[in-house]
Design a protein around this nucleic acid. Structure first.
Lengths: 110, 110
DNA sequence: CGGGATCCTATTAGATACTG
DNA sequence: CAGTATCTAATAGGATCCCG
């Protein structure tokens, strides 16, 4: 979690800091449904590299939006899911989906 | 406006395309209140360069989220405001502000 | 399976100077 | 006032190889 002094005053800017990268919102979108495994996420996100996925997951976890559950088995089994905090972000996702649909529903002139 | 073929299928990804950069959401946040002028925006956004502001405004306008009204006077007077489409995004902003506030309200452990 | 480490490219953002 | 134009710095993202 980030401490309060590291966060911008503006709450919008705060949320931008937490989820404002290309993939984080799409990861959360997936985790809304159920917990996912690493490779499962990578395949479903179509095009994300392993590095970026790792980094994104780590930041999201360190910011407290998702959890990482390691089953400690061999072969490894790790699952990622939303925390309470992450769940709260799904409201944002819902509105974004809404806006996206609305945008596409407006017939462009060209 | 972007044509439908240029947009991702996922509506969340669509919205990310439209407003998913560091400053665009903050610009829209300001324009929610009233139309703003260029320099006014720049000062209020604290730290944005003209170049980035110009680019962001142009993209937002070309994507149909904001309008640009040039009064054609000298000295120049240009105002930026939200279109119908941009207004729709304010729902997203509202939820983001909410999430940001919520995040900050959760007392971090450290 | 779930990554770590490295290297490289592309996209974004910032600084500075100038203009109609 | 509202930008252009250039150049550079920072960062995000991608490709590849490797390991327990």
């Amino acid at each position: 979690m980030k401490r309060r002094e590291e966060l911008p005053e503006c709450p919008v800017a705060t949320t931008v800091m937490l989820v404002g990268s290309k993939w984080k919102l799409l990861i959360i979108r997936n985790l809304m449904v159920r917990p996912w495994r690493f490779n499962e996420l990578q395949r479903s996100l179509g095009g994300i590299s392993q590095k970026v996925l790792t980094e994104s997951l780590r930041q999201l976890a360190s910011d407290g939006l998702i959890y990482r559950k390691d089953f400690g088995t061999n072969p490894p089994h790790v699952a990622y899911g939303l925390t309470q905090l992450g769940l709260h972000c799904t409201h944002v996702l819902k509105e974004m989906a809404d806006s996206g649909d609305y945008y596409k529903s407006v017939k462009p002139a060209s």
